[in-house]
């Protein structure tokens, strides 16, 4: 299961990551046996419906899940720091983890309003990580903060820096969140649905901004979204998540040219396409994603899969490589490969 990220040095290798959380309804199997790797400067897009475990996975990479809600965790998160050392974040104590958040990895959240502290001026929120991690003094930190605001495209940065979050529009707030995340030049940026709360026009601005900053800093990025369209043209690799598992993983182009997993196909077909004529009937996926409470037997997508076979309900499909394809994996007994003769579903 090695990914040949040949050109760039490897930054992150996640193997068999499993996270189960306590909840009032029972054990939540939020992340199950997730593996992937990411090289410097590359973008991994993670797509899936809400409740598929995307945010839990992102937070567990950052070590941001509250300890007491983790019922079980296993797997390794190998992170290559600057001096080419390899550290397992999964084993790292909170204290050391804190030093990595900021300079090594940073996160951008979905809701820009709740990610910012409403009672603190932007200047305070921006300079704090700079002073803490980079040891800048007050004046240096302030001028660096103004640079950062300007870099994320906020006009009149010097004037804006003394404002409060509520004085900014949603798009500007998300820019500020990004500026804070970038303050210490992280090697990895995790963006958890950074544009879901925003308009299309602002969404494009923010995604373009992220792409530009990524290029400038050779930063790796994990871009989480529920919109295939957002990652389609912006990610190098795409991982499709369903019920806590990565059900398909491939380079972006390969995924769209030869998708293998029925869920990927269903997700793709349910999106209205701008090039289709009006009133084109959408192929909705029936039902809802499962609740992830307690372990289920068999393929989690079986109740909604149009290709389901009896075997799918009895065994959990393992992750397998697509023959003759590079870095293309899926977890389905009956993948959609054009060459294979596929029987129709039994219901």
């Amino acid at each position: 299961m090695t990914d040949a990220n040949q050109h760039e040095p490897l930054l992150l290798r996640v193997t068999g990551l499993t996270v189960r959380l306590n909840s009032s309804h029972g054990l939540v199997h939020a992340v199950e046996d997730v593996s992937f790797s990411l090289a410097r400067g590359q973008t991994l897009g993670i797509v899936g419906e809400s409740g598929s475990g995307k945010s839990v996975m992102a937070r567990s990479l950052m070590g941001l899940l509250p300890r007491r809600s983790i019922a079980f965790g296993s797997g390794s998160i190998l992170f290559h720091t600057d001096n080419a050392q390899e550290q397992d974040l999964a084993q790292m104590p909170d204290k050391l983890m804190r030093h990595l958040r900021g300079p090594a990895m940073a996160m951008v959240f979905q809701d820009p309003m709740t990610a910012l502290n409403p009672v603190l001026r932007l200047s305070v929120q921006l300079t704090e990580p700079l002073r803490q991690h980079l040891g800048l003094d007050r004046q240096q930190a302030r001028s660096r903060a103004i640079e950062l605001l300007a870099a994320v495209g906020i006009p009149d940065a010097a004037g804006r820096i003394d404002q409060y979050p509520h004085q900014l529009s949603g798009g500007m707030r998300q820019r500020v969140v990004i500026a804070i995340a970038l303050a210490c030049n992280p090697a990895l940026l995790i963006a958890d649905e950074p544009t879901t709360a925003l308009d299309v026009t602002v969404q494009k601005q923010i995604l373009d901004l992220l792409a530009r900053l990524q290029r400038e800093h050779n930063m790796a990025m994990i871009l989480i979204t529920h919109d295939l369209g957002v990652v389609a043209s912006r990610a190098d690799y795409i991982a499709v998540m369903y019920a806590g598992r990565i059900v398909e993983y491939a380079p972006a182009r390969t995924l769209f040219t030869s998708m293998q997993h029925p869920y990927t196909e269903a997700l793709f077909k349910s999106i209205p396409r701008i090039n289709d004529p009006s009133h084109t009937r959408l192929q909705a996926i029936p039902g809802r994603p499962p609740q992830l409470i307690n372990a289920a037997v068999g393929c989690a997508f079986a109740p909604r899969c149009q290709y389901v076979q009896p075997r799918c309900r009895q065994q959990t499909p393992p992750v397998v490589e697509v023959p003759d394809a590079r870095e293309h994996r899926h977890a389905c007994f009956y993948p959609i490969s054009p060459g294979l003769n596929r029987e129709e579903g039994d219901d």
Binding site: H25, G26, A284, G287, R288
Partner: peptide, 17 residues
């Protein structure tokens, strides 16, 4: 197209008994 809301909720509450 009939959906499965009710099934879902029923399953959930039954699981908790």
């Amino acid at each position: 197209m009939r959906t499965k809301v009710s099934d879902q909720s029923v399953v959930r509450s039954r699981a908790q008994g």
